[in-house]
């Protein structure tokens, strides 16, 4: 899987995962009805790692970050595993979308490429996370920890999951679009 990483890349992966973990701790809830959905910038190191070393690097960073978070903050328990899993899945969807958009839109002008990246990544994230919440994550929460919702699952997706992922996609997309072109010039 990651046999092609040399020592330097392994160390970069590890420290990017540590940065991602630290950024995950600085999270702010943005949707009032679902305070457990928090916006954080932990996807930035994952995207930077993906663009510099490829998809498997991004997946490794996301996995190590989720594992560390689950052990230290989540208390290695089953209910917290659901939350960690859904944040891991969101990272994977985001990194795949960003990677394929940026690699396949080579001929376009630079500005257009980044705007396309933000729009398509947001779209992919919103669709994937809505489906995941509709069919997997929220039913799991209800069955496992007896979470009682004051409204139905589709309504929760409509009023919390979709706005949250649109905001998340746009915020992370914009910050990544500002930082990465500059950063890639400095770090070869």
């Amino acid at each position: 899987m990651e046999n092609h990483f040399d020592v330097k890349q392994l160390v970069q992966l590890a420290i990017l995962a540590a940065v991602s973990y630290v950024l995950m701790l600085i999270a702010i809830p943005i949707i009032p009805v679902a305070p457990y959905m928090k916006l954080d910038l932990s996807d930035l190191p994952i995207l930077i790692g993906t663009m510099m070393m490829g998809i498997s690097a991004g997946i490794t960073i996301a996995t190590v970050k989720s594992l560390l978070y689950w052990i230290t903050i989540g208390g290695a328990s089953l209910p917290s595993l659901i939350g960690v899993f859904s944040s891991w899945a969101a990272s994977i969807v985001l990194l795949l979308a960003v990677f394929f958009v940026l690699k396949s839109f080579k001929s376009h002008t630079r500005k257009l490429k980044w705007i396309m990246m933000i729009i398509l990544a947001t779209l992919a994230l919103t669709i994937a996370m809505s489906l995941l919440n509709l069919y997997v994550v929220t039913p799991l929460y209800i069955n496992m920890i007896g979470l009682k919702l004051s409204f139905s699952v589709p309504k929760l997706v409509a009023i919390a999951v979709i706005p949250f992922n649109i905001i998340k996609g746009i915020v992370i997309g914009i910050i990544f679009a500002i930082i990465y072109p500059q950063l890639s010039k400095i770090i070869k």
């Binding site: 899987m1 990651e2 046999n3 990483f5 392994l10 160390v11 992966l13 590890a14 420290i15 995962a17 540590a18 940065v19 973990y21 630290v22 950024l23 701790l25 600085i26 490794t60 190590v64 970050k65 594992l67 560390l68």
Partner: peptide, 26 residues
């Protein structure tokens, strides 16, 4: 099945070691 277990555990250990350092950095 040829999964690079040493690489994975090295990555996890380095990440764990650098969490306090990078918190200080932020």
């Amino acid at each position: 099945i040829h999964v690079p277990v040493e690489d994975i555990s090295l990555t996890i250990s380095i990440a764990l070691r650098f969490v306090p350092t990078m918190t200080g950095e932020v």
